[in-house]
Design a protein around this nucleic acid. Structure first.
Length: 227
DNA sequence: TACCAGGAGAAAA
DNA sequence: TTTTCTCATGGT
């Protein structure tokens, strides 16, 4: 079966509407490139407010956010790292994943070594690390390495599905390629688009958390009383 | 009380 | 190969 191409005009239109509604989001919320990558691991299936607590505890433990780097993290015993990450949730799993990522990061020659790789090779390298899946890798590629990769998350699926932009049952890669083909490879655009989708999901419908179509193109499937 | 949150990997079917 | 289970804190 051949999947239909994503509607280019609609993909653009949804972005324009989101941007006009919420304005620029200035993502990713972090002080350093490495903090972006750590945050990408910690935010897996987790509310960002919890990630912030964990990041703060970890940075404090290391003597400041400027010390939030691969070597200092690896120097911490895993149990101690996990304790810092307690507020994040899944803290044992994430302590192990963060250490695995830090080890691979160093082995690859740190940021400089990784930045020498082309986007496809870098993506493969990141995905090869235990605990780094498609979304986490693409967060890193887009927000820490400025590569033109569209990040797909649960919000993207739901909103895109509701607006008829994509098939919500499609695989991760199919949806990613859909956006990339429809929009063209554009780092600033991809950066803002994903940030706006996440912001929109949090900003609308406090009484109906599953509603992602509110106030957007008049396609909200819920009654106005929920908006 | 129940449900959800910016997933990923292992185990089971 | 596809589906199900596990990981866990904090807010609503």
């Amino acid at each position: 079966m051949t999947h239909p191409h994503m509607d280019q005009a609609l993909a653009r239109d949804v972005f324009d509407t989101l941007l006009a509604t919420y304005g620029p989001q200035h993502w990713w919320p972090a002080e350093t490139r490495f903090e972006v990558m750590v945050g990408a691991v910690l935010t897996q299936n987790t509310a960002w407010t919890n990630v912030e607590r964990g990041l703060r505890r970890l940075a404090d433990r290391l003597g400041g956010v400027t010390n939030l780097d691969a070597e200092p993290i690896l120097a911490l015993p895993e149990a101690e790292l996990a304790e810092c990450l307690r507020p994040v949730g899944y803290f044992n799993v994430k302590a192990r994943r963060l250490r695995a990522f830090c080890a691979d990061y160093l082995e690859a020659g740190g940021r400089e070594g990784l930045a020498r790789l082309d986007t496809l090779a870098l993506r493969r390298r990141l995905l090869a690390t235990n605990g780094v899946g498609p979304e986490t890798a693409d967060d890193m590629l887009l927000y820490a390495f400025d590569r033109p990769v569209f990040v797909v998350d649960a919000y993207t699926r739901r909103l895109g599905g509701r607006l008829g932009l994509l098939d919500a049952e499609a695989g991760y890669e199919a949806i990613r390629h859909g956006f990339e083909q429809a929009l063209g490879l554009d780092v600033p655009l991809f950066n803002e688009y994903h940030a706006l989708i996440v912001h929109h999901a949090k900003a609308t419908c406090r009484t109906e958390p599953r509603c992602d179509g509110c106030c957007l193109r008049g396609l909200c499937p819920f009654p106005k009383s929920h908006r």
